[in-house]
Amino acid sequence: MKILGLIIAVLTGTLLIYTTSDFPSWGDPSSPASTHLSPHYIEKTLEETSVPNIVTAVLADYRGYDTMFETTVIFGAGVACFFLLRVPRRKEPVERLYRHTLTGMTLRIKDLDEVPENLDEFERIDTLWAPYDLIIKTVCRLLIPFIQLFALYVIAHGHHSPGGGFQGGVILGASFILLAVSYDLRTAKERLREKLGGILCAVGVLIYAGTGALCLLLGLNFLDYSALASILHVDPITARSHGILIVEIGVGLAVMATMIWIYDNISSEGKYEEGL
């Protein structure tokens, strides 16, 4: 199998390298990819949408359908992970570890039908519990608000600088995953409950599709944001810029919630009890 794979890879590689002789050279401004549609985007984007970042404008406006279904794919991936891995709360008695915070003594409680939730002097720990790491926890606690602030900046400033819903959403999701890694999964889940995460994921897609449907209701094409001008009380060109921001927020929500959703399901094997 290894030799067969090597032969296939080398043969395919040779064929592909043979075809590169027809390709335009590096950085050629008159290559076919840069001559047909892209000059229109570069030259007309600013006057048509008033968004300086062409990538954002093409992503959310000119190719709005593509991005909408891309967001749906993300949502579908989150749902797929959920249905594959999530297990309902088990009925059999559980075994849990509790650590007395003052003395550092650990109790293993077996065959517990009802687990008391409010134990002031005890904290619940994972079975593979690593010793309390003060530095990591403190640094992460200090950093996470700034990471989230930066994520919001990336989403909101996507019109003028590299950024947008996908990038900001991933950073926002990473901040919650950092919380789950540096503390434990339960702490992160207390901040953003599983149900809320799922709802946010769906709400993100709904904001995107709903904006498109709103444009349809206002008498223009689906995802033609200039229809929003009458609602936002701005001229149609600025309305397209605002419409892009609205769908970027939807994309950001969906991506953030899906990243957290996938991480939670995979790291805890769908049990949500103990994560990485």
């Binding site: 840069s34 990538v55 993300i74 991933v170």
Partner: peptide
């Protein structure tokens, strides 16, 4: 300005790769 279209396509492709 460089061609924005491949950047748009790959921006979505990266996220789909993660999914």
């Amino acid at each position: 300005y460089i061609n924005p279209l491949p950047h748009v396509l790959m921006l979505t492709a990266i996220v789909v790769a993660v999914a």
